[in-house]
C-alpha cells in the first residue's frame, strides 16, 4: 500500500468512528461493529510504523472491553457507575482521538487544502481551516515554553491564586500568538496568498483502492448504526 489515503476518506472515517463510538449501541452485533471501528486506527498506525503506539492502543482496548464485560456481570451500584465512566471515557474517545491524531499527522496542509478545494469549499473557510490544522502543534510548543517560564518564576500550574495564574498564562500566550498571527499573515501575503486568486496544487490527492476498502467498511458500520442501531443519524 504505497498510496496514501485521500484526506476526504480520512475525514469520513473519523466522523464515522466518532459517531459509532460515541453514540452507538455497544452490545450484541454492535460489539463487532465497534471492534471494526477500533481496528481502523490500529491498521493505520501499523501502516505508519507506529508500532509501540499500536501496541499500547490494543492493550488499552482489550483491558477496557474486558473490564466492561466483567463489571456488567458482577458489580452493581455506584462502583459500577464509576468504573463505567472511566472505561466509557476511554472506549469512546480513544479510537476517535487516535484517528484525529492520525489525520493530522499523515495529512499535509497542502493535501488538506487540495481536498477541500476539490469539494468546492470556499476559500474563506479553507484558509482558516488549514490554519487551525497548522496551529495545534504550534500551541503545544508555545504552551511548553510558557510552562518553563512559569516554573522558573515559581508559578505553578495549579497555584494558590487561580486568577493570577490564569493571567500569567494568558498574557504571554496572547503576546506570542498575536505576534505569530502577525508574522504568519505577512509572510503568507508576500507568498502571494490571496482570498480570490485561483490556486494550483502539487499534492496528489485522489481515491484509490485502499480508500474504497476503508470507505466500504465505514459505510457498512454507518448503515448498521442507522438502520439497526436506532441511535442518531448523520
Amino acid at each position: 500500500m504505497t498510496r496514501k489515503l485521500d484526506p476526504r476518506t480520512k475525514l469520513f472515517l473519523l466522523i464515522v468512528i466518532n459517531v459509532v463510538m460515541m453514540t452507538g449501541k455497544i452490545s450484541g452485533v454492535f460489539f463487532y461493529v465497534r471492534l471494526a471501528m477500533v481496528a481502523i486506527p490500529f491498521v493505520l498506525m501499523l501502516k505508519n510504523k507506529m508500532y509501540s503506539g499500536a501496541g499500547i492502543y490494543v492493550a488499552m482496548y482489550t483491558y477496557v472491553f474486558a473490564l466492561e464485560g466483567y463489571t456488567m456481570e458482577s458489580i452493581n451500584g455506584v462502583l459500577l457507575i464509576i468504573i463505567l465512566f472511566t472505561t466509557g471515557m476511554v472506549s469512546r474517545f480513544l479510537a476517535g482521538g487516535m484517528m484525529a491524531y492520525l489525520v493530522m499527522k499523515t495529512t499535509t496542509v497542502s493535501e488538506f487544502v487540495t481536498a477541500m478545494e476539490r469539494m468546492h469549499v470556499p476559500k474563506v473557510i479553507v484558509i482558516p481551516f488549514a490554519v487551525i490544522f497548522r496551529f495545534f502543534p504550534t500551541i503545544k510548543e508555545e504552551w511548553q515554553d510558557i510552562r518553563y517560564a512559569m516554573k522558573m518564576r515559581g508559578i505553578g500550574a495549579g497555584g494558590k491564586n487561580i486568577m493570577q495564574t490564569l493571567e500569567y498564562v494568558t498574557v504571554p500566550m496572547a503576546m506570542s500568538v498575536s505576534k505569530i498571527a502577525d508574522e504568519l499573515s505577512a509572510a503568507s501575503m508576500t507568498k502571494c496568498l490571496s482570498v480570490d486568486g485561483k490556486r494550483t496544487h502539487i499534492a496528489k490527492v485522489g481515491f484509490s483502492w485502499p480508500d474504497l476498502i476503508f470507505a466500504l467498511c465505514a459505510i457498512g458500520a454507518l448503515a448498521m448504526h442507522i438502520f439497526y442501531g436506532g441511535a442518531i443519524t448523520g
Binding site: 499535509t108 496542509v109 488549514a130 490544522f133 497548522r134 502543534p137 505576534k179 508574522e183 504568519l184 499534492a203
Partner: peptide, 13 residues
C-alpha cells in the same frame, strides 16, 4: 523568525 513564516507544516508544501 523561522518559526512563524511558514503556512505549511511540511517542507515540500
Amino acid at each position: 523568525n523561522p518559526r512563524s513564516q511558514f503556512f505549511n507544516v511540511d517542507t515540500d508544501s
